[in-house]
């Protein structure tokens, strides 16, 4: 006999569903805080608006380096922003690559191809994180 209710999804899918919502709101707030901070740190007089908005997406000093900031280190370059940037990128990458997994599961139905595609997404995710860590903590300099 068929159940009256549709089959329940796994707990993992529920948590990813929840994570997508929460991380979406979190990224909006983190971006807003970045813009507010950039204004407080004198961004209004130091750089043009587009450069300042770049700070919202990835707050590392070389992201705004092209403008005339006299001394980058007191406000624009410290470990707070390094942690902030890596956190923002971690959340964004998880949100993004989980979304990509959703799209892939919608369009690929062959099991082994799906497995391969999901594996590739996971590798790309790890590579992005590694790359971001190298950039943010300047490990190659």
């Amino acid at each position: 006999m068929r159940s009256r209710y549709p089959k329940r999804g796994s707990a993992f899918e529920y948590y990813m569903w929840l994570f997508t919502r929460l991380s979406g709101v979190l990224m909006l707030f983190m971006g807003a805080f970045g813009i507010v901070y950039a204004n407080l740190a004198g961004g209004r007089t130091l750089m043009d608006m587009t450069t300042q908005y770049r700070w919202a997406f990835f707050p590392t000093y070389w992201h705004v380096q092209n403008s005339d900031i006299p001394d980058v280190f007191p406000n624009w370059s410290n470990s707070f922003w390094q942690v902030y940037a890596i956190l923002l990128l971690l959340v964004a990458a998880m949100h993004g690559f989980n979304g990509l997994r959703g799209v892939i599961e919608d369009y690929i139905h062959r099991p082994y191809l799906l497995l391969f595609a999901k594996f590739s997404v996971y590798i790309l995710f790890l590579f992005t994180l590694f790359t971001a860590a190298v950039i943010v903590f300047e490990l190659f300099v």
Binding site: L89, A92, G96, F97, G99, L100, V103, L124, F127, T128, T131, A132, V134, I135, F140, V141
Partner: peptide
């Protein structure tokens, strides 16, 4: 929503990886 999400992922992915190789 789907297209723009993929667009962001494409841009950010290319941006991060290109920045990495540009610096490295």
């Amino acid at each position: 929503h789907r297209i723009t999400g993929l667009g962001i992922l494409l841009f950010v992915g290319i941006h991060v990886i290109a920045a990495f190789f540009l610096n490295a």
